[in-house]
Structures are given as structure tokens and as C-alpha cells.
Design a binder for these strands. Structure first.
Lengths: 119, 119
DNA sequence: CTATCATATGAACATATATTCATTTGTTTG
DNA sequence: CAAACAAATGAATATATGTTCATATGATAG
């Protein structure tokens, strides 16, 4: 049998009312996209580990690299990602750059996630 | 100049004390990995959209497909991912399968993320 | 100014992953 | 049982993304 365009549920939806109602309640596509982009940042073990480390206070790039056991370059790339998403902030002191968490949202998001996986 | 193994911060760390302290406080690598895996699930706009839709109540696969404007197959694949991570649950009613959110963690995680991007 | 060190960046590569297409499974109805 | 339909699955493809290597930038010390 060959596939049609959208054979799913035919033209008459099973619950067209529900679909229309929900459609009206959904955030804008752009918002949902941004939200997914945010969570994508948390969706990498190196970055999550960096964020968890920064919960304990500020650290310089090379300290983080030691902790993660990855290249300084890799850490630097990831810190740029975190910085761009406003999840971390930094201050320069001579040659050294110290990174720290930008705000408490990071903590809360991490906590909620941790709760879910630990139940 | 050629690159050495780990020229970063030489052997004597800048803050070896801080590094060691934080190392002791970090969750296990496996836990951090699982956490990243969880957030990865939220890190896709299709899945986030599905989860937001389910905030309003249960929906069948084909309704979700209509809402997302993607293939029934794509939705089904994503629902499997969400199901595996215990973010959604389902019940069967005849030919139709209804999906709904598994618990309130989903709601909380979405809320925290939304707060961050909207500030 | 030159050397050195901490960090950042660019390019390349390898891996992961989301979607589509085709097909299958499972259920209901004639 | 056969047809029809909702949902699930497998394979293939295209794209995204994380790491490494090499190099550049920016800052301090001699």
C-alpha cells in the first residue's frame, strides 16, 4: 500500500475541538524554540558538570579543565556557550578569567532535573 | 611553537585546593550524565511543544501530529523518547493511544526554563 | 620589546540525533 | 477473515554538535 500525504486520522480529526483549544493556548513557536535551545545547553554532561562545579563558587578556566579532565580548549568552547545563554558570568583578573553562575535559575533548573532522575 | 600534553596552568594548579574541594562535592559522573540525558530530552522544540500541549490535558498521537504540523511517525518516535524518560504516560482506548504528562516535575522544569528566557 | 602563560577561536572530524519513507503491529468493524 | 485505521518501528539521510588540534589574542613579567 502506498503512503498518502497525511492519512493520519483522516480529514475529520478525532478531537478537533481539543486540538484547536490547545493550539490557542500554546506559547509562540519562537518561544518554544528558545526554550528548547536553553534546555539543549543543559543537555551535555560536560556543561552540566561545569554548572554543578560553579554551584560551589567561582573557578578559573584551567581549574575547570582539570576538574572535567578535558582540554582547556573544550572547556573554553563550552564556557562560551554558557556565557552566550547568560547561564554564567565572568570576571577577569590579570591573565586569569573566573567564571561563576549568572543567577539562581540555573540552580533551580538543575535541582528540578535532579529530583526527577532520583525518584 | 608546538603544543605540550597539558600546558594548562602547568603542574602546580592555580587553585589546587579549590579544585580538590569541588571535586569532592560533585555528584557522581554517572549521575551528571543521567541529568544531561534528561535535559537533552527537553532540548528539542518538537518535544518541548509536545510537553506544553500535554500540559492542557491528554491528547492522542494524531492530534499531537496535527498540532505540531509534523508526521505521525515523527511524533511517535518522539513520544517513545518521552515515554522512555518517564516524562509522559499513556493509555490505550481501542485503536487510539492517549498521552499525558507523567508527573509535576515536567511542569516545574518547563516553568523554570521559561522564567529564565523571559527575563 | 620579547617571552610566557591563560584564555579564546577557527577549522576539521567524528558522533549523535531528528525527520522522512516504507512497512509492521495491533485493534476494531463489516 | 479481510479491510481500514491508529500507532509503532526500522533503515536511511541530513543536519547539528562536541572535541581536538593548531593558532591567535590579551596580559604580565623580565
Amino acid at each position: 500500500m502506498e503512503q498518502r500525504d497525511l492519512p493520519c486520522c483522516e480529514e475529520n480529526l478525532i478531537h478537533s475541538d481539543a486540538v484547536e483549544r490547545v493550539r490557542g493556548l500554546l506559547p509562540r513557536d519562537e518561544t518554544l524554540y528558545d526554550l528548547a535551545e536553553l534546555f539543549k545547553i543543559f543537555g551535555d554532561s560536560t556543561r552540566v558538570k561545569i554548572l554543578y562545579a560553579l554551584l560551589e563558587g567561582e573557578l578559573c578556566v584551567c581549574d575547570i579543565a582539570k576538574l572535567m579532565e578535558v582540554t582547556q580548549s573544550a572547556v573554553s568552547h563550552q564556557l562560551r556557550v554558557l556565557k552566550t545563554s547568560k547561564l554564567v558570568k565572568f570576571r577577569r583578573e590579570g591573565k586569569t578569567v573566573y567564571y561563576s553562575l549568572a543567577d539562581e535559575h540555573v540552580t533551580r533548573i538543575l535541582s528540578q532535573g535532579m529530583e526527577h532522575i532520583q525518584e
